[in-house]
Design a protein around this nucleic acid. Sequence first.
RNA 1: GCACCCGUAGCUCAACUGGAUAGAGCGCUGGAUUUCGGCUCCAGAGGUUGAGGGUUCGACUCCUUCCGGGUGUACCA
Length: 600
Amino acid sequence: MELQIKEAISAALKALYDHTVSAEEIALQPTRKEFEGTYTFVTFPFARVSRKSPEQTATDIGEHIQANAAEVAAFNVVKGFLNISLSEASQVNQFAGIFNGVDVSQSAIFQQTATGKTVVVEYSSPNTNKPLHLGHLRNNFLGNSVSRILAAAGYNVQKVQIINDRGIHICKSMLAWQKFGEGETPESSGLKGDHLVGKYYVAFDKAYKAEIAELVAGGMGKEQAEKEAPLLLEAQAMLKKWEAKDPEVYALWEKMNGWVYSGFNATYERMGVDFDKLYYESDTYLIGRDRVMEGLEKGVFYKKEDGSVWVDLTDEGLDEKLLLRSDGTSVYMTQDIGTALMRFDDYPDLSQLIYTVGNEQEYHFKVLFLILKKLGYAWADACYHLSYGMVDLPSGKMKSREGTVVDADDLMQEMADTAKARTEELGKIEGFTEEQAKELYEMLGLGAIKYFLLKVDPRKRMLFNPEESIEFQGNTGPFVQYTHARISAILRKAQQLGVSMEDINFDGIEEVHQNEKDLIYALSTYPEKLQLAADTYSPAIIAQYVYDLAKEYNRFYTELSIFNESDDTLQQFRVALSALTAQTIKVGMGLLGIQVPERM
RNA sequence: GCACCCGUAGCUCAACUGGAUAGAGCGCUGGAUUUCGGCUCCAGAGGUUGAGGGUUCGACUCCUUCCGGGUGUACCA
């Protein structure tokens, strides 16, 4: 529809002013509510070629397309804005075109052509020393949703993560467990594995602080105390033993990481995210080290007197960056080089590698991509840092040492509990089994938190307000879910009454209500919203769209009755509109990783 | 110090990438159901888009200078 209008305008420009602009280059925008029309064409830029005022230009074009394009029923001009009204028939036709039959899942708006390109999306990538928190939730939901969006837009998507399973942090937990744990296990304590390990990470920190205080009290400087506290030295010694594959340390490391993984897996499952492939830092850091050595031989990097290896990025306006320590051990950057290489080895036809990582690491990725380029990898340009803002609490930043971290497991449970309370109060779930009810609470609770975290532009820092996040009204996940449940009730009733969506005589529809036009328009924009979301890696576009669509439907719903409509064809038409709206909500929410219920 | 990001209604967020009188939600005030699910819908109040200058027919959007907030700049990850 939009394309036809664009073509008509393109033809008008050619006929009136002998000015050639392809239809694709014509920009249309939706007409603002206060004016009559569906599409608006801005003529200011064309006053130059028409050599007339913008108003006159708009009028001329309007007259031309009204005369030549059947879709155009009327037009009006306000200043340089040409507002185009579509004919009733063309709007019904537009819907008929996208409705595409009873199986709404096969609607034309969901048919995206495959790009044939493979994209890898990395997300989550936690450290293995403590449980997941609210920040991880934003990361996971964002990465997972972007994966779904890209897949829907026709890409072959692979979801991966790099697990930071080695390093001083895990040694700290291991050491504390050894010292204070008394053999405690997830089974003996009843704690989830990741929470158990996290408990010892905290225990380490506490004991370490105490040691520092003691040393300082004994007259030592604070900085020195922080470096020389016995516990820290022990942890460092343990890391060296690990690198030397000391059997005892290695066994402990495997045992405790195992606990963490099973804890993480339970959390991921509840979150509804998954991965196609896992990378482990303990596998990739050695590869990175080899490549750094190669780069050194090629003269891309240089060595200082103490043996440490550096890259000089001052020509690019950045600093010098360390790649290998003087003792030959690797740093974060080293392993990231290795990880990138492994991925392009694993996926040779990879057209893009997306890193879902917080914006505090922007500098790191800038450097990483530059290094990869300097090493001569042409695919360095295919790397992209999907950078997102931190999640703040009303009290400020989340700080683990102040105990203000919002735990992922706790939060999900809280949301499900709230969903339960709301449903018991207001829900219509008579006849649900206990299983079904539980499933619903999960769907609503998770829907609320996912929607809350995804509706904000990923790049922006956002505020997590606990009270607001569990709200079920307004711009929330449950609001959209409710709309879907509401439509489902309509569709059930239609089926009961034998109102069929088959063989609708669209030609028999003469008058379409404004609410119906608005709804058709909203449905028709799904493909472009999806494309925009894919291009900008922004689930927020989809969240906004789905919300607007739900609101549009609710307006339609209050304004027009379906089953009291005496015209059978109109009744069918409205049921069909409802069915496609429900499906679009379902698909759109699906892109956010949110399920929608039939009843709630 | 230097680099990057952000600043929009009381609060949380939008604004189709330069277009009309800057829109939603929450909260506040007032309305709507002989009708299919009121977790809904409609209306009202609420703005110098942090401030100034510039480019443009036209600026929340681009340039510039300030102000305020954040992040980064480790032989940490």
